[in-house]
Design a protein around this nucleic acid. Structure first.
Lengths: 232, 232, 232, 232
DNA sequence: AATGAATGAGCCTTCATTCAT
DNA sequence: GATGAATGAAGGCTCATTCAT
């Protein structure tokens, strides 16, 4: 029926990557089908296997593609020099990360989210190699904020507290993009901007880290201390 | 040929619910199959449709069942009286929540996790009606800690920061239960107990809330303030 | 559309086995398709997997079924007592074997033939366990005819000469059953009966064995070359 | 971008023929694919259709090519003059034939073997025209050995006995070349040379023919005669 | 002339569901 | 009431072939 003009292979490949990212982000690996991806890419059902060999491979390539573009659009350091004060650098990193999450054209995070909830194991290698180094940078930053007395465990816990907060509001940031059944964010948060969210997270986290740090240096009965401070 | 006595009907239903919870937790709604559930429940392939009408319905019922049992095993108030100081009540709630997450026999959270990543929409109604009231209680607690000056938005943000931190360590707490491809927790966190994690989250959160509260009452240029405090 | 009455599962299974034997015999493992087999068995395309789990398994089961029936219809000893003279026993065995080959309703041999030319490896185990013991009996018979002086190698060679002759006329015996492209037997052999063929093979083989035996006992007589090579 | 000079056209054709022979010999017509053949020939996937029009045509051409080369390498008369005694001429023919079978670089026989087991009908014409004349020569030789009294049927039967024996040991001669699932030859035959096998076949066949000839001239109850001869 | 891209038909398999018992 | 048998729709994938270049 619809005869296609012969295009550069890379062009079709690109359309498939984009369509795949969209579909994988919306449906996850298992629910996504060749048919849907290829229809969206205006390609034949056999195209996936022709260009990528398998659904599995397309999945990995689509994620890599998303991830690379997203990192280019929002560099993880937030454009801040390593000489900036750690609080600023933290804000830069978090803001960049939140922007990557919030960008409605970036499907990386949705894919990762689904992958973590329902692991196929296919992204493990690709994710580890690109994400781990960022994580080390973040850990160093947290360590810097926590001070020298902090144990490695404390650093990890604080990093976890920080990053968890970033993932939490995913639903709020991606409003219009969520599937019909998804829960809606509570009203008071519905209209927050990315910057406002990042600001809250950083403010909350810095205070949290400060609290942990003070406890490390002055390990009295902590709950008492806190109450007395607040009560004054 | 082997005629079953009537009473088994309810018993089979129960076995199906248990098996379904297990399989849905492990595979998610879409990857789970009648066949696997029924085999695990030692029931006929047609049992799901016979007892529950459809896979969708079984999914909802299985989650409700899990959730009810989990709430009974770990009451959300952590056994603390409403008269206890808010910090204690917060710790009680978080610890109870973390226990529900960590209990290897409780599949509720894994189901919810997969449902949020890959929404079917089927649990929305059931989840909303049972979870929302708990959320209101938590919001009230946060409001109490934040003080009267706090806006509704600030309360919501802090509650989000709090709950996000609870979901983050899910992977660490459910070691051994995760599928083979899942990422492993970083070494320093691998051996933490539920209590230690809950303790960190509460400590971190209380400090975070305190920080937000102070900012509300004294809205100077925040980054300056922070730096000067750290320098003292 | 065509609603089937519920039959005994074994009946459908049996129809599938019969249809599969037919199709595998005609097309070989790879060219045979579920669709063709199931159509012939008047069953759904999914039936193969439902009843046998896979095409591979059906292949093995179909062959086993054929083989068992064929062995029952034409017992390998040809109905002769072990006390009969070896020539008679040889004729009995060969005739039975040729009958198994010639039976137009028995697809065992065609399947084996295709399997040997184009091995899938799937029948190896099943064939070995049922065929090897028959081969040992034939070897013993050949050994008896060759006399005590015969080396194991000579026995094997003669058994090979014997059995090869049985496979050779396969094409002639199965006239009407061969696919359209198959070569036709030469005119003078077209009308031979199974008995006549078996008779020729046995007569030829007995003379061949006798010749080998005489050479063993009196290694001058045969061709110059052979004698000198034996070098005794 | 890499422009090929014109002369390569024939060269590519040749590489395709060689690759096709290899693949058809290993997999048979149906399992062989354009992709595998072209990859082995380092040619484009479209080459088969471009140079040969279809897979079917390539199949025929590849076989013809193999066959011609094989006949050149091992002339069917074994290099013996038509004046040599018939026994010698028989040995020459069989040895040449066995060499053609045993040559690991000659794929002709494997193709024929698979074709006979799983006929496509495509080789029928080509095979008939090149093989039939050889068959007539062999028949004449057998007729000569059987004597003038022999019926045409007896000649055909003996030729069949002879040639069948040549095909039988195919598996033994092509060790190492067989697919993984193929049955292995019995130990005592594993190390036989081509000459030793040809020698056995000729010796066995000459004795067989002699036996048939004697029976023709002296048609007593054959089994009796045989037994008495053995006993002398 | 020769090729890389693309395609559509078909294969094996899975699975939720239905039906007669 | 409960179940084993059966089914049709769909999924991922392969492959010979065609087409524009």
């Amino acid at each position: 029926m619809k005869k296609r003009i012969r295009k550069d292979a890379q062009e079709t490949r690109g359309r498939l990557l984009a369509a795949a990212a969209e579909v994988f982000a919306e449906k996850g690996f298992w629910e996504a089908t060749h048919a849907e991806i290829c229809e969206k890419a205006q390609a034949n059902t056999a195209s996936v296997n022709y260009h990528f060999g398998s659904k599995e491979n397309l999945y990995v390539e689509a994620w890599k593609d998303c991830h690379a573009e997203s990192m280019k659009a929002h560099p993880p350091d937030g454009g801040l020099s390593p000489d900036a004060p750690p609080e600023k650098r933290l804000y830069g990193r978090i803001l960049a990360f939140m922007h990557r999450i919030a960008d409605p054209d970036n499907h990386e995070i949705e894919i990762v989210h689904k992958e973590m909830a329902n692991p196929t194991g296919l992204l493990m290698h690709a994710m580890h190699s690109t994400i781990e180094s960022e994580r080390q940078t973040t850990l160093a930053l947290v360590r810097e904020l926590l001070g020298e007395n902090a144990s490695e465990q404390a650093v990890c816990l604080c990093e976890m507290s920080l990053m968890s907060q970033c993932f939490g509001p995913m639903l709020h940031l991606r409003r219009g993009k969520m599937p019909p059944g998804a829960p809606r964010p509570p009203a008071p948060l519905a209209e927050l901007s990315v910057e406002q969210l990042a600001n809250h997270i950083v403010q909350f986290t810095l205070a949290g880290i400060r609290g942990i740090r003070e406890n490390l240096n002055n390990p009295k009965k902590s709950s008492k201390r806190r109450r007395s401070r607040r009560g004054e």
